[in-house]
Nucleic acid binder design. Structure first.
Length: 269
DNA sequence: ATCGGGACCTGCTTGC
DNA sequence: TGCAAGCAGGTCCCGA
């Protein structure tokens, strides 16, 4: 379940094996992903050199002179670097490189996507995205300003990609617990001071997860290590049957925007 | 304009 | 035991 830290870790992990090499071919075994994979992808991109590998929100961008290959991991996708051709279940797509390595896209639930983008930041899937959480632009003033008049729960608000990208269900829950804000509180009713605190926590939690992911990542050629967030101490996510780590009272679970949400009624107001 | 909910998909867990 | 329902998760899109 890739959250932003895992996408960032993947980005850093594949870089050494891809940067500066060219695409020789693309094998599409299953084109039915979130968006249909263009059957001409291989023809369009063969011979193209990968000149940059970056992340925007939860998209991985393999940048080439004629455009970017945008990869989204959805909820169950992953990339690995392999050399052999033996394919496993859900290995939907291979990007074969000039160095003999293969970037393999595996995604059991097929919520991910592989799209060729020649429009840069103005691509329809990118144009409406909010700011990156780990930039200076994302601060308490920004979040507070965006929340003016909004009745939507603060949890839904920080998970809204139009406001800030990359805060998924796990980190929304964790961040709200650590900043002591009730997940159902109306976004417009969170004070500036608390918004500043929340922003600081979000940055910290994401950065720690990236660090954990990075340190667990050896060579990216196998399924080594778990996603960064499983190496972190999770305070509320998945702990609905347990007690609060701060006050030791039982945690509560509710559904907000169809998403399971665990919180402490005592510590979060 | 704002917000909630449906849809997409598979695998693991839980319950009858 | 076997099968079905429930749930997880990201994000686009539509309807109220």
């Amino acid at each position: 379940m890739p959250e932003l830290p895992e996408v960032e870790t993947t980005c850093r992990g594949i870089s050494p094996f891809t940067l500066g090499y060219s695409i020789e071919s693309i094998i599409i075994r299953q084109p039915k992903l979130r968006w249909p994979v263009n059957p001409e992808l291989g023809a369009i991109l063969s011979g193209q050199t990968i000149i940059n590998v970056k992340r925007r929100a939860k998209y991985l961008l393999l940048q080439m002179p004629i455009g970017d290959l945008m990869i989204h991991l959805g909820m169950s996708g992953s990339l690995s670097i392999v050399e052999e051709q033996t394919v496993g279940k859900h290995d939907h797509l291979d990007i074969c490189l000039s160095n003999g390595k293969i970037i393999r896209f595996n995604d059991p639930r097929r919520f991910g996507s592989v799209i060729f983008n020649q429009q840069g930041d103005s691509h329809p899937l990118l144009i409406k995205l909010g700011i990156e959480p780990l930039t200076d632009e994302f601060d308490g003033n920004y979040l507070h300003h965006q929340a003016i008049g909004k009745n939507t729960p603060i949890k839904s608000f920080i998970m809204n990609n139009h406001i800030v990208v990359g805060v998924g269900n796990i980190y929304a829950q964790e961040s709200l617990f650590l900043s002591g804000i009730h997940p159902k509180r109306a976004a417009g009713k969170v004070s500036l001071v608390r918004m500043k605190h929340l922003v600081q926590i979000i940055k910290q939690v994401l950065a720690e997860a990236i660090e954990a992911g990075g340190s667990s990542l050896k060579d990216f050629t196998g399924a080594d290590g778990k996603p960064g967030y499983f190496q972190q101490k999770l305070h509320v996510y998945g702990r609905q049957t347990k007690n609060c780590l701060k006050c030791h009272k039982p945690l509560k679970q509710v559904v907000i925007s169809q998403r399971s949400t665990v919180y402490c009624a005592q510590c979060q107001r």
